[in-house]
Amino acid sequence: MINYIIRRILYAIPILIGVNLLTFALFFVVNTPDNMARIHLGVKHVTPEAIMKWKHERGYDKPLMWNSAAQGAKQASDTIFFEKSVGMFAFDFGRSDEGRDIAHDIKTRMWPSLAIALPVFMVGLAVNITFAMLMAFFRATYIDLSGVVLCVAMMSVSGLFYIIGGQYLVSKLLHLTPISGFDAGSNALKFIILPVVIGVIGGIGSGARWYRTIFLEETSRDYVRTARAKGLSELSVLFGHVLKNAMIPILTGAVVVIPLLFMGSLISESFFGIPGLGSYTIDAINAQDFAVVRAMVFLGSVLYIVGLILTDISYTLVDPRIRLE
């Protein structure tokens, strides 16, 4: 088991190197530091001196990959690639183009993100599985059919409308919660409730329908027929056998997103004014702060790969047939 995990982690390294090289190419080769400086200083009426100064302050005036002017090991290390990209492997994200410490920002901003994303994930999973079980229990009846129709209709509404509609109804008409904002400690609760509820509702359509398919696939298996043949009630078949066996495909989809919960949701965080990583990324995109976007791309990939490894490990926990060698 330990051996397998170590091997998986080693296997992740080339992928991370690939991500790193790709982001480096996107941000420094396709789009040169000169272009970045012009975007920040204004496209017209900008002097070459101002560009040089801007680049120097952020360390973008060094050679890209290889510094032939330096001595010894500095030839490789005194470059943009080494300073801006290699450091990311040690989670050293450097400073944003505005001069803020990105690692510190990430540390403080991931908690509000998690405060929204984790409840959305947990409650959403529970709600979706409950609805899916209901539909599977009443399969091929009008309850099931109308459930599916409702799911398809809910899937067809853009997530933006759930947020706008929810904010309008709950905050503006009923005045139940504040429209947006965030607070520390237990005061945060009133700000969290609405985004969580909307997040859960927005996910029901696709989630419940997907789990329903999984449950229906399981109910057509032989062991279900055996369980019914030995006289078990439909409810105990569903909970005792189908749910357990359906955990494997459910886990595939669910575990992989757990690490990504730290990244928060771009849309709902910016609508609700939550100071998390999602709104951090949106602000960076709008301010064209390339350093922050680069850091978030790398962080997101790391978390995704961690999620893949966690998925494999979780298989062994729910499925005794799988042994990781």
């Binding site: 991500v19 996107l26 941000f27 990244m263 976007v293 978030m296 791309v297 997101g300 790969i305």
Partner: peptide
């Protein structure tokens, strides 16, 4: 493994 929205954002910025 790169989050889709971020890759799109990066590319569109460029």
């Amino acid at each position: 493994s790169i989050p889709g929205v971020l890759l799109i954002a990066a590319a569109v910025l460029i």
